[in-house]
Write a protein that binds this DNA or RNA. Structure first.
Lengths: 155, 155
DNA sequence: AAAATAAATATGATATATCATAATATGCAA
DNA sequence: TTGCATATTATGATATATCATATTTATTTT
C-alpha cells in the first residue's frame, strides 16, 4: 500500500540515489560526504554568501552549516578568516586540496548522474523537474488562512 | 547551477514535502513524527514482519527501527511482547491509542497529499512514479564489474 | 554617543541515523 | 546432543540535524 504513494516513491528514489552517489565517491577513496561536498561547492561558487544563505541553498539550517564548515576546515579543505569588512562574517576560500577534491569528485558525480538517469532522455528529465517544482511550490504555501481552513474542515 | 540538477530538485521537493506534511500533523496537535507514523503503519498492516523487513520498507536500518519501536512503546502507541513461537522475535500490536492516532492522522495526511499534488492529475502522478522508479532501479545495480569499469575509465 | 535592535556565527541540548558489535535464541550438522 | 552457523533484536559509539539561545559585531534610534 505504501508503494502506491507518490511521496514514498520519491523518498525511495532520492535515498537510493544518495547511497549510490556516496558509494561512487567512497569507491574512489575520496573522504567526503555528499552534503559536505555540496556545501563546499556552494562556497566555491558563491564565496561571499553567509551561512544562512548556504543553509537555504542546501535545505539545512544555519547550525548544520556552521558544523559542516567546521568539519571542512578541520579536514583542510577550506580556509576561514573573519572578514575585515564585517567582523561578524567569515571570509571563506577553498584550499588547494579543497579545489583538488572538487576536481577529483567531479567525474564520480558525472558518472553517477549518467547512470542514474540512463533511459531517461533530456525532455523527460525536464518534465520531471517541472513536476517536482510544482510539488515544491504546492508545499511552500505558508498560508495561515488555509491553516485555519484545515482546522475548520475537521472541527 | 545547482538548480539545473534533477537530483537537487528531487531533494528539494521531498524535503519541502516532509516539512509541510509534518507541519500539517503538528498543527493538529498530534505528537508523532512522519517516520514514527510510517513505522506504526507498517506494523499495523503487517504485524508479523521483523525489524529488518520494516527497515527495508521505510529505507532505514534495523537499529533505527529498534529505536523507533522503543519510542512508540514508550509513547504507549505500541505493545511489544516476545513471541512465544520464536523467542527472538517480538509480537507487536498497536494499542488503542495507537489505532486512534493513526485514525487521527489520516485526514492530515490525505489533506497534505491533496494539496501537495494539486495541479497534477492522476496520469501525471503515474508517469512521475514510473520515472522515479527507473531512477531507483538505475541506482540499484550493485554490479562490481561496472565498479571496475568506472575505475578503469579514469585510470 | 548611548541604548536598543538586528545580523552573523557558535554552541549546548536533544533527537535521530548509522555502523559495528553484543546478546540471545533458533536450527542444522556431525 | 553438542557445537557451529544463522537469525533477531539491543546497544555503545559516533555522526549529523535541529531547536533554542549565546556571543560578538554592526546598524538604527533617540
Amino acid at each position: 500500500m505504501l508503494n502506491e504513494v507518490i511521496f514514498y516513491t520519491l523518498e525511495k528514489a532520492i535515498k537510493r540515489y544518495r547511497q549510490f552517489a556516496q558509494a561512487g565517491i567512497d569507491r574512489r577513496g575520496i573522504d567526503i560526504t555528499i552534503d559536505q561536498w555540496l556545501v563546499l561547492n556552494v562556497i566555491r561558487d558563491m564565496p561571499d554568501v553567509g551561512q544562512m544563505d548556504i543553509a537555504e541553498q542546501v535545505f539545512k539550517d544555519q547550525a548544520s552549516i556552521a558544523r559542516i564548515i567546521e568539519l571542512l576546515v578541520k579536514k583542510g579543505l577550506l580556509d576561514r578568516t573573519t572578514s575585515l569588512a564585517d567582523r561578524r562574517k567569515l571570509d571563506m576560500k577553498l584550499t588547494e586540496s579543497g579545489c583538488q577534491l572538487i576536481a577529483d569528485v567531479a567525474p564520480a558525480i558525472a558518472q553517477n548522474r549518467m547512470q542514474a538517469l540512463s533511459g531517461l532522455d533530456e525532455a523527460v528529465v525536464e518534465q520531471l523537474k517541472c513536476w517536482l517544482e510544482i510539488i515544491f511550490l504546492n508545499c511552500s504555501i505558508h498560508s495561515s488562512e488555509s491553516t485555519q481552513q484545515l482546522h475548520d474542515e475537521h472541527a
